[in-house]
Design a protein around this nucleic acid. Structure first.
Lengths: 326, 326
DNA sequence: AAAAAAGTTGAAAGCGCTTACAGATTGGTT
DNA sequence: AACCAATCTGTAAGCGCTTTCAACTTTTTT
């Protein structure tokens, strides 16, 4: 069943069928009805592939995310998808983890599928292997990077003020009298580095004692490593983490060791995910504005596709969410 | 830049270029190298759209999910996407919420994009408006329903033993001496109904006193409604919820009211999401096997696409995860 | 060395649509 | 009644590829 079959049965040309299908051009009312009747009769589904062949667009964009099982990425991806739906685009979702090879093969696939654009959600800090492919693809289609930056032409960046967020967090804790800081980070991403930078800035500014530890993602890792740290006699009165889940693991260890939170130690998470509301005491955290990040990316994208000149970089401001843990 | 340009520059026919591009047919080594050199030189990206036009497949499948911000759906969608990647398929992700109109328009879009299959993740209990479209689309492409059932030809169902899960939960709590049960459910899905059925079965079996309450999704709803219930003097010693998050909201209220969990009241969640590890006490829950659900769907799908005869319905067994709250 | 087999290549059709462009029809004017 | 403009419709080209089929080349067999 194709457009020819419909045209034959409706006794018109395929051009006419195409016009009623797309509501383009002008078609006499009687003709339109005749065609629509046949369309309905056969429950006709036009081929977007064939249309894409002609128009050179499948009205699809690729979203390359780290891992949607992480609530932050899920929220960003969700808001992207919903915003794109309104614009009539569908989204191909790709989870790459921190695997460069997987990212490369996804980028290649998206380029071949001629997506109208690619939105990268999160990016590793430095990955030289990605530079050339990104530059090459960006010559063909615009690339939007959420929490990342490439700086090539036709490459756009939406960033959260991660550095500022960490600075604000430390400032706040200092104002509460905290003096010895522990920072727990969990992945070598662009954002991760921004956060780390913010922490270091703040520590230097306030001339604080501090410790920085890498902890692989996961609540149990955080719990265990925190316990080890304490058992080895580490001392601190403020714990900051790059993810809510890490903060919660640490928090649970503290509580199990009968260290009071926030009386003895303040704990702050990051992302304001639903997790931060599940623990006791409720976690103070940073609202990383996942929804706004996604929406902004799509709004930038729609302006690019409309041919407007668009700023290469947008920054979204940091906001603390103070609850019980700090 | 298309296959003709490459062919001209390499001094071969487009058929030959196509062969080296796809590694199909046989090409003399010298010829292959000649072509590959040109391919590399221009960094050629073949058009999957044009290929799709010929082969009538874009190697893409549509995943229609309720909302990936919910961890369960995120996990299922993730495992689907990863399993599909291995098979060389990309996935178009669609979040529909509980909105029938949105679901319909997504289904139409997927049909037009000629996806090789559609995987529905979660489905509303009864939605007659969906029946006809589902049946019509299933005549064109196979539809896999995770936690749902249609029963049309070319329609396949992957179900979790939700009914059994609730029965087991109640059985367990009865064995612990619990007598007055409260069940909190949050959405009118197929699974939701199965769970409810399981709860009712078990209550009848054990001849228990019970109350059933609908609570809209969200931790704050659960918290508030639970508190109201208690303030109105409701009495129970076991609370079951259809989602971890609901259980946690209830749990927090109980704790705030100085009701001890699990000493005075047992609480059980559902899904074994990371949330269940974030609260204190840790939540006992049901492992809903999100990863296995997704993987099973894809393995069923791959057999369908390979032309094998496949059972129309697969059921995955229920498993309790006992922790501190019950 | 001739014939048969195997390997390699190219010409051309066709996938299902959109979109100039031209031609046909309609309606409105004089 | 003749004419022009506006509206409607159809013809045909072309989007970039895969694949069949036939032709040509090389290798193997006798």
């Amino acid at each position: 069943m194709n457009i020819y079959d419909i045209a034959r049965e409706a006794n018109v040309s395929i051009a006419t069928v195409s016009r009623v299908l797309n509501g383009s051009g002008s078609v006499r009312d009687l003709t339109r009805q005749k065609v629509e009747r046949v369309l309905k009769k056969y429950n006709y589904v036009p081929s977007a592939i064939a249309r894409g062949m002609v128009t050179n667009s499948m009205k699809t964009i690729g979203v390359v995310s780290i891992d949607i099982r992480n609530l932050y990425y899920a929220n960003v991806s969700y808001s992207i998808e919903q915003a794109l739906r309104v614009l009539g685009f569908s989204t191909i979702l790709c989870n790459t983890g921190y695997n460069t090879g997987q990212k490369l093969s996804y980028l290649k696939m998206l380029a071949e599928k001629k997506v109208d654009s690619i939105i990268l959600v999160g990016s590793t800090f430095k990955d030289p292997k990605l530079n050339k492919p990104i530059r090459e693809i960006s010559e063909l289609i615009p690339i939007i990077i959420i929490n990342g930056y490439y700086g090539y032409p036709n490459t756009y960046s939406i960033q959260y003020e991660d550095t500022g967020a960490l600075e604000k967090s430390v400032d706040y804790l200092v104002s509460k009298g905290r003096k010895k800081f522990l920072y727990l980070y969990d992945a070598d991403t662009f954002s991760g580095n921004q956060k780390l930078l913010g922490f270091k800035n703040a520590v230097k500014k306030h001339n604080l004692e501090s410790d920085i530890r890498f902890i692989p993602p996961g609540i149990d890792h955080a719990y265990r490593q925190m316990c080890e740290l304490i058992e080895r006699g580490a001392f601190f009165d403020a714990v900051l983490a790059s993810e809510d889940i890490t903060a919660i693991g640490a928090l649970q260890c503290l509580l199990d060791k009968n260290i009071r939170v926030p009386e003895d130690v303040s704990v702050m998470g990051y992302n304001n995910s639903i997790l931060s509301l599940c623990c006791t005491p409720r976690l103070s955290t940073v609202d990383s504005m996942s929804e706004e990040m996604g929406k902004t990316a799509v709004s930038v994208l729609s302006r690019i596709l409309a041919g407007e000149k668009v700023e290469a970089s947008v920054k979204i401001g940091a906001k603390l969410v103070l609850r019980q843990s700090a």
